[in-house]
Every structure is written in structure tokens, then in C-alpha cells.
Simulated assay, not measured.
Amino acid sequence: MKDAASLLARVPGANVKRNGSLTGLVAYRGMCGNRINISVNGLNMKEVEPNSMDPPLSHIPGALTGSLK
């Protein structure tokens, strides 16, 4: 598992598109980008760079992810 986005590939309605070897762009039931709220330990995370070059879940190693809800 490269990043936490890889876990979402198992969720019904979710899809992960790869933008390179380490970056997973998450789509959930047709929504993507800032339409998906990503919260890590109560802290909301958003994309920083244009064109989704650095999505929030690419910063979280899959091996260190305890749960995904």
C-alpha cells in the first residue's frame, strides 16, 4: 500500500486514480477534489497545489493508517 488513498479502492462507490507512482486522486460517487472532506485526527486537509498534484492523502503512509471512515 503506497498511501492512504489505496485503502479507498476497497470502499463501494470510491475510486482512486493514480497521478504518478505515489499520488492517489480520490473520487467518491462522482465527487472529487475539494468536494471530498478529508479529516486527519480532527484536522481538515485540502489540496495545496493546482491540478491536484499533491492531494491530501498522499501525505499519509498507508502503513501508518489505523482506520479510515
Rank of each mutant, 00 (worst) to 15 (best):
M1C: 10
M1D: 10
M1F: 03
K2S: 12
K2W: 10
D3A: 12
A4I: 06
A5H: 03
A5F: 02
A5K: 01
A5T: 06
S6A: 14
S6E: 14
S6G: 11
S6I: 03
L7S: 05
L8N: 04
L8W: 09
R10D: 15
V11M: 10
P12S: 07
P12L: 01
P12H: 03
G13V: 07
A14C: 15
N15Q: 14
N15P: 00
N15C: 11
V16M: 12
R18T: 12
R18V: 09
N19P: 00
G20Y: 06
G20M: 09
S21T: 11
L22M: 14
L22F: 13
L22A: 14
V26M: 03
V26L: 15
V26E: 03
A27R: 03
Y28T: 04
R29L: 08
C32A: 08
G33P: 00
N34D: 15
N34A: 14
R35A: 12
I38R: 01
I38S: 05
S39R: 11
V40N: 02
V40I: 15
V40F: 07
N41E: 15
G42P: 08
L43G: 00
N44E: 14
M45Y: 07
M45P: 00
M45K: 11
K46D: 14
K46I: 13
K46T: 14
K46Q: 13
K46P: 00
E47K: 02
E49F: 05
P50F: 04
N51E: 13
S52C: 10
S52N: 13
M53T: 10
M53I: 10
M53H: 02
P55Y: 06
P55I: 09
L57S: 05
L57W: 04
S58V: 12
S58I: 06
H59A: 13
H59V: 06
I60R: 00
I60F: 11
I60N: 02
P61N: 04
P61A: 07
P61H: 00
P61R: 04
A63V: 06
L64I: 01
T65V: 15
T65C: 12
G66C: 05
G66I: 08
G66H: 07
S67L: 04
S67Y: 06
K69L: 08
